[in-house]
Structure formats: C-alpha cells, structure tokens
C-alpha cells in the first residue's frame, strides 16, 4: 500500500472510532439500561445508570404473554415472505433494466422512484379501501404486498446497478450453449449476485420489520399484528409501560442485529454495486 503504517496513526484511528461510536451506541445503551429499571426510575434525576431494582421482569412478562410472542411470530413470518418475494420480483425487474433497452425504460425508472414520494398518510384511506375490496383486510397477505411496494424500488435500483457490473458475456455464454434466458439468469446471474441479494435482503427485512402505520391500519385483531404495533399498544391513554416497551424494542432488534452480524461480510460487498464503473 501507500506509505508506512505508523503506530500512532493506528491509535488515532482507534480513538476516533471509539469516540464516533458514542453517537450511535450511547442512545441504544441508555435504552437497554432503562429496560431493566422499574418504571418511575426511568425518569429519575439525577439519572441512575444501573438500577438498584435491576430486574428482568419486563422481559419475563413478554415471554409469558402468548399475545406478545405472537407479535414476534407475525413479524418474522411477514418479513420472511417480503424478503423472499422482493428478491424474486426485483431480480426479474433488474434483469430487464440491466439487459434490455426498451421504450419507456426511462419513464419507468423515474416512476419507480417518484411513486415513493406520496406521503403514506394521504394514501391510507384509498389504500385501505383497495385492500378491503381485494378481501385482504386483516391478513398477512395485505401486509406482505404492501411492504413489497416499499421495498421494491430500492431493491430494483440496487439489483440493476449490481447486474450492470456483471459482464454480459456471462449470460451470453449460457445462451450460446443452448440455454434460455431464464436459465442464464438463474444459473449464472443469480449465483454471482449473492452479495447483492444479501444486501437487498437485509434492507428489505429491516423495512418490513419496522413498519408501523400500515401494520396498524390493515389489521384489526391482535393475532395479526406485528412488533411495532405491539410496542404502541403499551402506550396507554394515560401512562406508558416504558420498561416493557423498551424491552420489546431491544428484543425486536436482536434478531436484526444477529442477522447483520451473520451477513455483514456479504452485505458490504453487495453494496459495492453502484460504485463500480463500467
């Protein structure tokens, strides 16, 4: 590489990294600490770091409530299907954008971005009406289809960028050997796109896992609801169950955290797509 690695630069970088880490990590740490406190202590002054009444009770209460566990189950199930379908649909679409020139390509490209621009709140009533007409109200299907709309634009954009970096020769080789386009896509482009797929998958999972407004509006019974709605149900008319809310968010983000740790190698590589020049 360029220049010698000097030890003091290394120390400086580590210090900078540690200082920088305070920004993202401190609020999270504060949340985790508070989730172990009894409710009134959360607002104590001066603030307490580790509660004298340290307790796992908020966590235990969640585990003992079948209703709350159901929220987690629903969130996993919905997020799983959203990731799966987003990947399939966006691969097909990205293939079209990446390998073909066709009339309307530019318009479709712009539309995919601009349709995200309508504030969801204004869409709420017509959208709910549509979901009811399609007999999807209070179903997993409604949420899965809705989240596809949120995740597809980014997924298609990223997958297109990624496929653009893969040379055409790859798929042509298959086709020259007598394979079909779909074969080329499935056996050549998809396996080489794994990093891109993982990065899009992670993004998609987080979007689906964290969505609130439609999760609430498109469902009515608690057995169809997801973690963010479950958290809001703890915000009562008069008082909040702070510690349980915080415990639920900590628990909700743990699987995401584990997924991220597990996939992060691919994740970083996958995002490279947009930057590679052709």
């Amino acid at each position: 590489m360029y220049g010698k690695k000097k030890w003091y630069i290394k120390i400086l970088i580590i210090i900078a990294l540690l200082l920088g880490a305070l920004f993202p990590a401190f609020p999270i740490l504060w949340m985790v600490l508070n989730s172990f406190k009894p409710n009134p202590e959360i607002f104590a002054w001066p603030p307490t770091w580790i509660s004298k009444a340290f307790s796992f009770e908020p966590y235990i209460e969640i585990f003992q409530s079948p209703e709350k566990l159901r929220f987690f189950f629903n969130s996993y199930l919905i997020s799983f299907f959203v990731v799966l379908l987003t990947l399939i649909i966006s691969i097909l679409a990205a293939y079209a954008f990446s390998r073909f020139e066709f009339p309307g390509k530019g318009i479709l490209n712009a539309m995919i971005i601009s349709v995200q621009a309508v504030p969801p709140i204004t869409l709420l009533i017509p959208y709910l009406g549509l979901v009811v007409t399609l007999h999807l109200y209070n179903t997993y299907g409604a949420l899965i289809l809705t989240y596809l709309l949120f995740t597809l634009p980014y997924a298609i954009l990223m997958m297109t960028a990624y496929m653009n970096t893969l040379p055409q020769e790859l798929d042509e080789a298959v086709m020259i050997d007598g394979g079909s386009r779909l074969k080329a896509l499935w056996y050549v482009l998809v396996p080489t796109s794994v990093p891109g797929l993982v990065s899009v998958g992670m993004y998609t999972f987080m979007r689906a896992w964290n969505e609130y407004l439609f999760a609430l509006t498109l469902t009515k019974t608690n057995d169809m609801r997801t973690v963010p709605v479950g958290i809001s149900l703890l915000m009562g008319q008069h008082a909040y169950e702070w510690n349980q809310m915080l415990a639920m968010s900590v628990m909700g983000s743990l699987p995401v955290l584990i997924l991220f740790l597990f996939f992060q190698k691919y994740f970083i590589a996958g995002m490279t797509a947009g930057s590679v020049k052709h």
Binding site: Y137, T139, Y140, G141
Partner: peptide
C-alpha cells in the same frame, strides 16, 4: 393462493 390462505386465517 397465499392471499386467500392468509385471508382465511385472518377473518
């Protein structure tokens, strides 16, 4: 099919 299944489980 998924949608129908889900809608049945829901209502």
């Amino acid at each position: 099919v998924l949608a129908v299944l889900f809608s049945m489980s829901g209502t």
